[in-house]
Design a protein around this nucleic acid. Structure first.
Lengths: 159, 159
DNA sequence: CACATTTATATTGTGCACAATTCAGTTAAA
DNA sequence: TTTAACTGAATTGTGCACAATATAAATGTG
């Protein structure tokens, strides 16, 4: 019923099917996080930043804006205002590095650290809410990583 | 080296791995479309709207804003300004339905129809650029659909 | 040292997403 | 038929993403 054979760009071509599925799935999953994250006063991208900061805190290393950017694949145009909002909420502190004043380091406040306990419930609640077998999710994760790996390896070797 | 065993929310829990991978992969793929779409003067969401309109045009049915919303899972808060931009570029015409003035139908202009020919090259160019075996992509598509199906079936039966 | 280049972040502007609200128009009920 | 409830789209406001540009600081070169 959904089979098509149009030579031109239609929603049935493989690339469209995949990219559209990615587009919709990403928003659907983010929407699943939303009600869980409002309790913490976080958006999903903010939650990702906090995850990185919590992880880094355990390793004892200072986190720079560029570290967050490398990890989350976001640039300063996205991160700077986001981090300012997190700072406004008292979860992080942004400060210029004394050695190299171009660098801004991002550190957790006590409130930022403490939030981690509440956040601990989220993964379980989300997985339960999705209602998909873990095996399927692992398969999805692996397929995503494979494609992502291929995408990030190349520079711009298209055409 | 990336194995962790933290009981609290960290980037290594399965849900974070999957959702983060989705988040990054979606942006990476959209970034791949961008240089191909600038030739058409479209963003990726605009391209999706055009794909639906091209498809609908072949079936002869009129497309309402709510049809686009149902297909793309977007609400009027996103679609209305997007469609206005497409109308400004002369690709679509928005008009109130005479029978039911609450409804707005979206129709392609000649320029909108004609753009389809150029768009026809995009799927192939994108797939070639990704450099991943079609088999893998099909697997990814199917896994995405499975999870998406599970997500969209439920209402809010979480907790 | 002076000067060009590079690096790290910030700023500006555009375009999604989405919650919440509004509003016109339709339908249903009293 | 007046009113109440509902529907479909538009509006408003917030928060990402990202391109392009700007700024300041560090680094390299002659």
């Amino acid at each position: 019923m959904t089979v098509q054979s149009d030579p031109f760009g239609d929603m049935q071509s493989l690339d469209n099917q995949i990219c559209f599925a990615l587009y919709v799935a990403n928003r659907a999953v983010t929407a699943r996080y939303r009600p869980l994250l409002v309790d913490l006063g976080l958006t999903y991208p903010q939650y990702l930043v906090m995850l990185v900061l919590w992880e880094q805190a355990r390793s004892g290393r200072l986190t720079r804006v560029s570290d967050l950017g490398a990890r989350l694949r976001l640039d300063s145009g996205t991160l700077t205002p986001m981090l300012k909002r997190l700072a406004d909420r008292g979860l992080v502190i942004r400060q210029r590095n004394l050695d190299d004043e171009r660098v801004v380091t991002v550190a957790l406040t006590k409130a930022g650290h403490d939030l981690r306990e509440q956040a601990g419930q989220i993964p379980g609640r989300l997985l339960r809410g999705i209602g998909v077998e873990p095996g399927r999710l692992v398969a999805l994760r692996d397929e995503l990583r494979r494609v992502l790996g291929a995408l990030e390896q190349q520079v711009g070797a298209s055409d």
